[in-house]
Design a protein around this nucleic acid. Structure first.
Length: 255
RNA sequence: AUGGCAGUCUGUUC
């Protein structure tokens, strides 16, 4: 139980993961929840591929236990972190075979997986099939296009007025980050200013963008604005990390 | 003991 709960923490060290793996091997009949927990831990670890060997051992070799949608969500996460299109295609096949593709969470994670791996055609057609009114699916797809620099298509999806639930604070952040990644800070800034809500990620995205392109003064200005804006967006570790280089550049680094 | 219930869930910055 102790081990299970330490695996539920957000980050699990390699050592704990290793130990958990050994202990897990001693458990005679782990139930579905236990299997999911260890697969989840593996998926988020530095060796996501371990999730797949655990899956095959527990669900295929050892028992006839049936995986559930959680199991596949974690495998999808592992696969996305591996960024492996071929593993993704196989996993997709398994999911369809077992009938889990109708689960909205699984479907969105699939869209995310293909978008992450660069298989935008597959991601887009999954989206068109059943997910056009789902903001999570849409933003996963937008992120995929933005990642590959296809900002025109990304923007089209973002601006789509023909569907419902097309935007939230996350999708605004994704679109802003897309411009930032291409070094288009003016476009990023324009969107940022138009955004109905900003959270800490919105601010961090802009600050990191200015820092990365060497606009350290602008980065520091944003930080000042962020503090004045107050509200729900208080700075976090990511904010500080981006600011470090800008402070160093301006000579304002007093430690 | 058996049965049930609960717990794990998708997209953005670092």
């Amino acid at each position: 139980d102790l081990l299970l709960s330490s695996l539920q923490l957000s980050s699990t060290s390699t050592i704990i993961m290793d130990y958990a793996h050994k202990v897990f091997g001693q458990i005679v009949q782990p139930d579905l929840f236990m299997c999911n927990t260890i697969i989840r831990a593996a998926a988020y670890s530095s060796t996501p591929s371990l999730a797949f060997s655990l899956y095959f051992n527990q669900f295929i070799n050892i028992s006839m236990m049936r995986p559930d949608s959680f199991t596949f969500l974690f495998l999808l996460k592992a696969c996305a972190r591996l960024s492996s299109a071929s593993t993704g295609a196989q996993l997709h096949g398994m999911i369809v075979k077992l009938g889990f593709q109708s689960d909205a969470f699984v479907r969105n994670a699939l869209i995310n997986l293909h978008a992450t791996c660069g298989d935008l055609a597959t991601a887009h057609s999954l989206f068109d099939d059943t997910a056009t009114n789902d903001v999570v699916a849409r933003s996963a797809l937008i992120a995929g296009y933005a990642k590959r620099g296809q900002l025109g298509i990304a923007r089209g999806l973002f601006d789509d007025e023909t569907h419902c639930h097309t935007r939230d604070v996350v999708s605004w952040n994704i679109m802003i980050a897309g411009y930032v990644k291409q070094g288009q800070m003016d476009n990023a800034r324009q969107l940022f200013d138009r955004a109905p809500q900003r959270d800490v990620v919105s601010w961090n995205t802009m600050i990191a963008g200015y820092a990365k392109c060497g606009c350290h003064a602008r980065a520091l200005e944003m930080w000042e604005e962020m503090r004045n804006a107050g509200g729900d967006a208080s700075p976090d570790e990511a904010t500080v990390l981006s600011l470090l280089s800008s402070c160093a550049d301006s000579g304002a680094l007093d430690v």
